[in-house]
Amino acid sequence: MQDIAWKVSIFQILFMVIVFIVIYAKSHIVAPVDGLAQEKTRRSLFIVLIAMGIPLAFHTLADLPYAVPDRTGGPVQVVEAVGRQWEWTLSRNTFRVGETVEFRVTSADVNHGFGIYDGSMRVVAQTQAMPDYVNTLRHKFQTPGKYTILCLEYCGLAHHAMSAEFEVRP
């Protein structure tokens, strides 16, 4: 997901840079405004963006991470995860590949961010840890190894040091 966002962003930025360079290059010419052509171009752009956006919106909204039930019907490991300045407490810290883990995330003090990083330090999932609320995050780990939880909501002077680890076994 991160790679897609990065590559599409770079493509869009480069595309806009090229458009601006082309317009700059043509800005030295003096010609009357062709209002009809401009409006036609704008209307076409509008239609193209809407036509691209609607199916993409349905696609990206089809499978949201908000504690969806485990559709495969496999076992669910429930983990109580509590954040407090500046540590995480997990009721379990070993899991199996392929099992669905349900993290019930809350905070004992301020807002924290429960960010799960894989062995290559890429984010695989996250939710917020909030006082008086429990956010339920379900994730099925497909790769064995060591995972690290980092805090992804600024929570005070040792925010950067607030981490914990768990293991996913084959």
């Binding site: 991160q2 962003s9 869009q12």
Partner: peptide, 22 residues
């Protein structure tokens, strides 16, 4: 104009789940 897609990506729920507060 350049900021449009990075912003749209950040506001997309399934992307936000791996990008939020990075």
């Amino acid at each position: 104009a350049a900021g449009v897609f990075p912003g749209v990506a950040d506001a997309t729920i399934i992307v936000n789940q791996v990008m939020h507060n990075t």
